[in-house]
């Protein structure tokens, strides 16, 4: 019996020690409340906590922190928050909607100043907005929008516009095209990013090109590879292929090379997202270019929206109805790749 008690104590100690260690430096931070930052609508928290050096906590709940894109976004939120004198904490949904709800609820229950959210399952986020409104905490969406209302603003890329950007790039740069035939390897039709290819398609067709093939690579590079093979077989004279993300673009370019053609000469591939591993193919010419999004800018912009709202400034939306603000996108090609690498 004695030993059992001892063991129990040890287990508990370990458990608590782990918590203490894991939060370490943030121990005193979390004690600091959001008093000074508290806007008029944050009455609950203001009376309990006070702090000299911090105005409150800006939290970022992320889709999945193992993706480079979101690490950059988080970086944007973090630096902007800290520059404005706020604490920054982050939460990882790990692509799990239950974890998203649980984590955000726990954050909101701590009376943070603002929640920046990239929902892994936008449809499931309604209860988060509800709780946030109850608590008077503004929620700002980054990168992924939702149908439900209840958030302050939504910052994201205009995916259709990105497609248009890629289309115009083709029209401007491939003026000596012969067949004016293009193909697209798209994402799954249920994915919101499907509009990327729509933008590309509309632009090219307006410019006198034809879209010879449109296949779904389902976001997967290996499926994109076989799509590309099929495209070459059916349309040997295709000149440009637009892929809805970079891994598919790299894979497609490989398929072109494996078919005995020269990627960048016979068939030019354009990607999307500007992931770090696409720079090398762009520099050596196997991939023509990619549409870059601005995750860092999204993060920064989200914090900016919060601050503006705090100061009572009106936010200007690109789309009033969904409170959407579009962030910048641009083309990265061999000419400017070194700059963004």
């Amino acid at each position: 019996m004695k030993n059992l008690k001892k063991l129990l104590a040890v287990v508990l100690m370990v458990l608590l020690a782990m918590q203490a260690a894991a939060c370490g430096s943030s121990e005193e931070k979390k004690e600091t409340g959001s008093e000074s930052s508290a806007s008029s609508n944050e009455s609950q928290s203001s009376e309990t906590e006070s702090s000299q050096d911090s105005k409150g906590v800006i939290a970022y709940s992320c889709y999945n922190m193992s993706w480079e894109y979101y690490v950059t976004l988080a970086q944007g939120v973090k630096e902007a928050a800290e520059a404005a004198g706020y604490e920054y904490v982050e939460h990882d949904q790990q692509s799990d909607q239950s974890l998203m709800i649980q984590g955000c609820t726990d954050l909101l229950n701590q009376d943070i100043a603002c929640l920046v959210l990239t929902p892994c399952k936008p449809e499931a986020a309604a209860s988060i907005y509800e709780l946030a409104q109850e608590k008077g905490i503004p929620v700002i969406l980054a990168d992924i929008g939702t149908e439900a209302s209840g958030y302050l603003a939504c910052l994201k890329s205009d995916n259709y516009d990105g497609g248009v950007l890629a289309g115009n790039y083709v029209l401007d740069n491939l003026t000596d095209a012969q067949s004016k035939k293009a193909a697209m390897i798209t994402v799954d039709p249920s994915n919101t990013n499907i509009v990327r290819s729509d933008g590309f398609k509309d632009t090219l067709e307006a410019g006198g090109w034809t879209i010879a093939a449109e296949l779904s690579g389902q976001s997967e590079p290996d499926i994109a590879y076989s799509c590309m093979q099929d495209i070459i077989t059916a349309n040997p004279d295709v000149e440009v292929v637009f892929c809805s993300n970079d891994p598919m673009a790299i894979s497609a370019s490989q398929a072109v090379a494996d078919a005995g053609l020269t990627p960048g000469e016979d068939v030019k591939v354009i990607g999307y997202d500007a992931q770090s591993n696409v720079f090398e193919p762009i520099e050596n010419g196997t991939v023509l270019g990619t549409v870059a999004q601005d995750p860092y800018g999204m993060g920064e912009g989200a914090v900016d929206c919060f601050l503006k709202n705090l100061n009572g400034e009106e936010l200007t939306f690109d789309d009033e109805e969904t409170k959407t603000i579009y962030t910048d996108q641009w083309i990265i090609d061999a000419a400017n790749a070194a700059e963004y690498k």
Binding site: V14, L15, M18, Q19, A22, C23, S26, E27, K30, M65, V89, E90, H91, D92, Q94, Q102, G103, D106, L107, Q110
Partner: peptide
């Protein structure tokens, strides 16, 4: 409660997994 505590102290997701595994 444990997962709530870990969230309250903003324990990193990977460490949360370690913790759950240990539990």
């Amino acid at each position: 409660s444990v997962s709530n505590c870990l969230n309250l102290y903003h324990v990193d997701a990977q460490w949360q997994r370690v913790c759950m595994g240990l539990i």
